[in-house]
Simulated scan of single mutants.
Amino acid sequence: MALDPLRDVIARHGLATRKSLGQHFLLDGNLLARIVRVAGPLAGVNVIEVGPGPGGLTRAILDTKAAHITAIEIDPRAIAATSELLAVAGGRLHVVAGDALAIDLRAITDAPRIIIANLPYNAGTAMLVRWLHQAADFQAMVLMFQHEVAERIIAAPGTPHYGRLAVLAALTVDGSIAMSVPAAAFSPPPKVESAVVRLIPHPTQPTPALLTRVGTVTAAAFGQRRKMLRGSLKSLGGANLLNRVGIDPERRAETLTPAEYVRLAEAL
């Protein structure tokens, strides 16, 4: 069964992009296929897609040997557009209406699971933080963000983009920018460039309790990143806490490695 061009699907469902939903659609089939290939072989894998929009990325995933695709969408217009693919999916597609931030992806799909998504700009970081806390339950994540956000995910200590997100990512996944996507590739073009990030969970994960404490420490440290740590961490013990774990109280947040943040979290 031949599929209509994505622009026809968009017109048929009145799927003009909405800024409130952070929507920017990719319509180039070759580019969408490249993004899916970043995930590697998908045979036997259950793929989760968040925010399918008109279904372009969904089509590219269906073209692989993925066992099943679960597409989660909050926009009723996009739900209708993506649901058109049910007729050609051979039972491999399930469209879920709802907010991905309020859905436990582990409860609606079986392992092995991979997330492949062009995330909405206004909620992508919040989704990623949640999934990093659940990293052990995913085989991989292939996610598109604004390029600056992608840089924040993989940033190393001492670099301008290093912060709370980079610490959390470093402790839970092996991350890399797999490809850049120019603004002109989207409809409508956003004001910024984008990037596809490939995240592979570490075999051994920190406990949820430890990640929570790391979050507490990094929130305080990076919340006042211009201060020395003895000042930014004053509410958590300041110099006494730092001296207990052998970290110079006059250092600043961006100089600490993820492992040093773990030491501070363990000492709380």
Rank of each mutant, 00 (worst) to 15 (best):
I48N: 02
I108S: 09
A60K: 04
E73M: 06
L26C: 05
A111K: 13
P54I: 02
A43G: 14
R113F: 07
L57S: 05
R34H: 13
K19T: 09
P41F: 13
V88I: 15
L86A: 14
I61Q: 04
R12L: 04
G22C: 06
K19A: 11
G55Y: 01
L85D: 03
L101F: 13
L15V: 03
D63W: 10
F25K: 00
A81Y: 02
A81P: 02
A60N: 03
A81F: 00
V95Q: 04
A33E: 13
I48P: 02
L105R: 06
T64H: 08
E73P: 09
I116M: 02
T109C: 14
A39G: 10
A97P: 07
L32W: 08
N118P: 05
K65Y: 11
E73W: 03
I103R: 05
F25W: 09
G56T: 05
L101N: 13
A102G: 13
T109K: 07
V47F: 12
R7A: 04
G40H: 06
I61Y: 04
I103N: 07
R18P: 02
R7W: 00
N30Q: 15
D110N: 12
A97V: 00
D28V: 06
R113E: 07
D99V: 11
A97F: 10
G90C: 10
P76N: 09
A16G: 10
H13P: 01
T70R: 08
G98N: 12
I79T: 10
G98F: 14
L27Y: 01
A81M: 04
A100W: 09
A97G: 12
L21H: 01
A66L: 08
A39L: 12
R92F: 10
A81W: 00
R12M: 01
V38D: 06
R12C: 00
R59V: 10
G91P: 08
V36G: 07
H68P: 03
I74Q: 14
V95P: 03
R37M: 11
A39D: 06
E73H: 06
V95F: 05
L86P: 01
L62G: 05
R77N: 01
T17G: 00
